[in-house]
Each structure stands twice: as structure tokens, then as C-alpha cells.
């Protein structure tokens, strides 16, 4: 059974969700709950830090797309920080790097620079 640890912090009105482990069908529930809560209000500003996530499957990817969509619908944004090589490859193949905002690290994601 895959495991994903999820930690939520807030910095300058930005919710920073940090996940570590494997994000897949079996482990997505914690991140889904954290994302749902983060985008549940007006103009959400959310960074999902994934540098400690070693593997993301298609269910995990759908979770990120859903989070992005909800954030946009609420007039805010969701940004991904520090994706690993596997997630980058997946974002490239699926073309979802065109839809999702991806940054090298949390600082860049919070600022929204150097995408």
C-alpha cells in the first residue's frame, strides 16, 4: 500500500500543501482533502509542493487538474512546485504542463515567477 504524507501551512495568504511519498489511486485521499479545503473559499492561492513525491499516477494527476480547475473557478490559482522527473515526464506527455502552472520551487511558486 502506497503512502503519502501531507502537511498544510500558510504563508502570506498562500496555502502551501507539502506532500511526500507516492501519490496514486491508493494514497490520494489525504491530498484530495487538503486541496478541497484549500480551494473551498474565494480567490484561493494554493501551492502544492511535490519535491518529495517520488511517483504520481494518473489518479494523482487528475487530482491536480481538479484542484487547478476549482482554484480558477474561485478566481484564484493553484501552482505546483518542484515536481520530480517522473511527474515532469508525465506532465510533458499528457500536455498538462500547458494547463497547470509548474514552478521549480516553493519560493518561485509563491511569487509566481520563473515558471
Amino acid at each position: 500500500m502506497s503512502e503519502l504524507a501531507v502537511d498544510v501551512a500558510e504563508r502570506d495568504d498562500v496555502v502551501i500543501i507539502t506532500a511526500s511519498g507516492v501519490l496514486d489511486l491508493g494514497s490520494a485521499a489525504g491530498l484530495r482533502a487538503a486541496l478541497d479545503a484549500a480551494v473551498a473559499h474565494d480567490r484561493p492561492r494554493v501551492v502544492v509542493a511535490l519535491d518529495a513525491v517520488t511517483f504520481v499516477d494518473s489518479t494523482g494527476l487528475a487530482l491536480l487538474v481538479t484542484g487547478d480547475r476549482c482554484a480558477r473557478d474561485g478566481g484564484g490559482w493553484m501552482r505546483i512546485a518542484g515536481p520530480g522527473a517522473q511527474l515532469r515526464r508525465m506532465l510533458d506527455i499528457t500536455n498538462l504542463d500547458r494547463r497547470l502552472a509548474v514552478y521549480d520551487d516553493v519560493a518561485a511558486a509563491v511569487q509566481g515567477s520563473g515558471q
Partner: peptide, 10 residues
């Protein structure tokens, strides 16, 4: 011919 996955309009 690249577009987003089916299910996400593009």
C-alpha cells in the same frame, strides 16, 4: 497534433 487528454476540453 498535441492536445490535452480527452475529458479536458482543448
Amino acid at each position: 497534433g498535441r492536445r490535452l487528454p480527452l475529458g479536458i476540453e482543448d
